[in-house]
Every structure is written in C-alpha cells, then in structure tokens.
Amino acid sequence: MATAADLVFRPATAHDVPALVDLVESAYRGDASRVGWTTEADLLDGQRTDARSVAETLERPDTRVLLAERAGTGELLACCTVERRPAGAYFGMFSVRPAQQGGGVGRAVLAEAERFARAEWGAASLEMTVIVQREDLIAWYERRGFTRTGELSPFPYGDERFGLPKRPDLAFERLVKALA
C-alpha cells in the first residue's frame, strides 16, 4: 500500500481519460469497488462516469483534474477534480484505487486539492456534495474539517450517466470547509 510520501501529483491531460474512467469506476461501482470502503455498489448500479464526461471536465478552463501517481512508476492511485467557483472551489470526482484505501492516500489527495485551491486560485473555502446515505464518508470528511450545511439537492434520477439508483430516496448534501 502506498503512503503519502510515495505520491507525485500532476494535472491530468486528455491522454489520461481512459485510466481516469477506470479508476473512478473501480472506486465506486461493481464488485471491484467492494475491496475499498468508498463503494456505492449498494446504492447504485451502472456507471459513475464515462470518457466523454471526463474529457469535457478536462476542457473546462476553471477546472483541474489532479492525479496522484506512485513515485517512480507512474501508477495512477487516485484523482480528484478542483473547480474554481466565485466563493471558493468545488472538490469532486475524488477516487482512490480500492486496494489503496485506508492508508493515507485519500488524505494526501485532499490536502493537495486544498493546497492547489488556495495557492492557485486564492480560494477561501472548498465545497463538495456527498450522497446523504453515505454517513461513513460524510463522517470522514467531517474529521477533516468539512461541515454539513443541511443543503440538499436531488439525485438526477432518470439520467443514467450518473448511475442506476437502487433506492428512491437518494440526495446530495453540500459540505464546506474553510481554507486557512
């Protein structure tokens, strides 16, 4: 298992799209995702993302997809998206290879996203949305300084690009963290 010291960060390019899709899918969907603790396999079937969506994300001028690779090998271990917003930055598409979860890689990626948002864009806060049924994941973010806002947004039922829900009550909650 990799540690934070084993990671090298770089921005993603169009060349990385297939590997990014594979990473995100492995972290959240299907039986492979059950190796880690971030799986959504009990909540959703279908895809989490696709090549077109990832490529479009890479083309947005105020968005960076950050990759965490194993130093010396270039093996993709984790990724996230940081998007500049008027009031700060948005953190999303956070994925850690299931076999690497629980060892500090995720904490290191989150710290790099925070550093990037502050240093590159002067962001005063970082926000995200998490499926409210993911209490374990929300608790992880709270331990890292995020606050639940109680602001909910509906899950995009009927749009298979976001998955096939296994239950009718999915929603997202907005979480926010002030960046020092």
Results as ranks from 00 to 15, higher is better:
31 D>S: 11
32 A>T: 14
35 V>E: 11
35 V>I: 13
36 G>F: 09
37 W>L: 09
37 W>N: 08
38 T>G: 13
39 T>Y: 02
40 E>M: 15
41 A>F: 14
42 D>E: 14
42 D>C: 08
45 D>C: 12
47 Q>S: 15
48 R>C: 11
49 T>Q: 08
50 D>L: 12
51 A>D: 14
51 A>W: 14
52 R>P: 14
54 V>N: 01
55 A>N: 11
55 A>V: 13
56 E>G: 15
58 L>G: 07
59 E>V: 11
60 R>A: 15
61 P>S: 12
62 D>W: 09
63 T>Q: 06
64 R>T: 11
67 L>W: 04
69 E>K: 00
70 R>L: 12
72 G>L: 03
72 G>V: 07
72 G>W: 09
72 G>D: 10
73 T>P: 10
73 T>C: 09
73 T>K: 05
74 G>R: 03
76 L>Q: 04
76 L>W: 02
76 L>T: 03
79 C>T: 08
80 C>S: 08
80 C>K: 00
84 R>F: 10
86 P>D: 03
88 G>Y: 00
88 G>P: 12
88 G>V: 03
88 G>R: 00
92 G>V: 07
94 F>V: 03
96 V>R: 00
97 R>D: 07
98 P>V: 01
99 A>Q: 07
100 Q>C: 10
102 G>C: 06
103 G>I: 04
105 V>A: 10
106 G>M: 01
108 A>K: 01
108 A>D: 03
108 A>M: 02
108 A>Y: 00
109 V>G: 01
110 L>W: 05
112 E>P: 12
112 E>V: 11
113 A>Q: 05
116 F>K: 04
116 F>P: 01
117 A>H: 00
118 R>N: 02
119 A>K: 01
120 E>V: 00
124 A>H: 00
125 S>Y: 05
125 S>W: 07
125 S>L: 11
127 E>P: 15
128 M>K: 03
129 T>D: 15
129 T>Q: 14
129 T>P: 12
131 I>D: 05
132 V>Y: 13
132 V>P: 13
134 R>P: 13
134 R>S: 14
135 E>A: 15
135 E>F: 09
136 D>C: 08
137 L>C: 04
138 I>S: 12
138 I>N: 06
138 I>G: 06
139 A>C: 11
139 A>Q: 09
141 Y>H: 08
141 Y>N: 02
142 E>F: 09
143 R>L: 11
143 R>Y: 06
146 F>K: 01
147 T>G: 14
148 R>I: 05
148 R>A: 10
149 T>Y: 10
149 T>K: 04
150 G>E: 06
151 E>M: 03
152 L>S: 10
154 P>I: 04
155 F>A: 01
156 P>R: 05
156 P>C: 07
156 P>G: 11
156 P>D: 06
160 E>R: 11
160 E>G: 09
162 F>E: 02
163 G>F: 06
165 P>Q: 01
166 K>G: 09
167 R>E: 03
167 R>T: 12
167 R>C: 06
